[in-house]
């Protein structure tokens, strides 16, 4: 038996919109820790890891670990029927091949339930090693989204370089080149507008902009994004979900050969 009641139902709607472009079908894992997902895109270049901790739910009952395979597009279709202020409850029964989403309006005058068919999904669960990153950039998520969108009109890849000066996003294409440098500005009064750059070693890595743009669908989840880079590792683009957890996107770099 599974019953997860999320008062801020809009969070689940935003999570789905954040990941469904990257991943079509995925197993949602439910345990005492929380509601989580790990899935790769079809070309195995990017990986998304989601965690919604059990403490973030108003009511969280998960009698035993359960994995539910869902089409994210179908789930998004159902969650789009929930109002932004609705309370969302996810219900599942052991051995059942369906999951139920219940939506309650804030005034309790409208209660809907949507039953969705589950699917069997073969997915390999990867071990993501704990890593010390060479550089960690924190910046406004909207600014990062703007940069990825702007650069993708010039080129297909972005070189992200971190130095003492700040973080530089560069691209080149048939029509020319572009460089955008963001400097640390942590003295600003509003923490959500701050850009901070922690650097242990200079880093420069190349990534496909198509994936970066897809990650920025998570922008509505958080005012800030954290970009962790190491020369030997996939970049991690993390959007924290207030009080609850995170959506992390991992993207393997491109290399010259």
């Amino acid at each position: 038996m599974l019953e997860l009641r999320l008062v801020q139902g809009s969070l689940l709607k935003k999570v789905l919109e954040a990941i469904r472009e990257l991943v079509n079908d995925a197993n949602f894992d439910c345990s005492a820790t929380g509601f989580s997902l790990q899935a790769m895109d079809s070309s195995h270049v990017a990986l998304v890891a989601l965690l919604l901790r059990s403490e973030g739910f108003e009511h969280y009952r998960c009698d035993r670990n359960i994995s539910m395979g869902m089409s994210l597009n179908n789930m998004a279709k159902m969650l789009r029927c929930a109002g932004n202020d609705d309370i969302i409850t996810v219900k599942g029964d052991d051995g059942s091949d369906t999951v139920t989403f219940m939506f309650e309006s804030p005034t309790q005058d409208k209660i809907s339930d949507f039953e969705m068919k589950l699917m069997d999904i073969d997915s390999e669960h990867l071990g993501i090693p704990e890593a010390e990153y060479h550089a960690i950039v924190r910046m406004p998520s909207a600014e990062f989204a703007r940069i990825c969108k702007d650069l993708s009109s010039i080129g297909d890849t972005v070189v992200i370089s971190v130095t003492k000066e700040g973080v530089k996003f560069s691209t080149k294409g048939d029509i020319g080149t572009a460089n955008i440098v963001c400097r640390q500005n942590s003295s600003v009064d509003k923490p959500e507008e701050a850009t901070t750059v922690e650097m242990n070693e200079p880093v420069s890595l190349t990534f496909a902009l198509r994936y970066m743009n897809s990650f920025t669908k998570a922008t509505p989840l958080s005012n800030q994004v954290t970009i962790s880079l190491s020369n030997e590792l996939p970049v991690v683009v993390e959007y924290k979900i207030a009080e609850m957890g995170y959506v992390r996107f991992y993207l393997a770099p491109k290399i010259e050969e």
Binding site: L126, A252, P253, I255
Partner: peptide, 14 residues
């Protein structure tokens, strides 16, 4: 020539 690496190259199956 640039080649795109995959996630599997970095993260092992568990």
């Amino acid at each position: 020539v640039q080649i795109q690496l995959t996630i599997g190259r970095f993260f092992g199956c568990c």
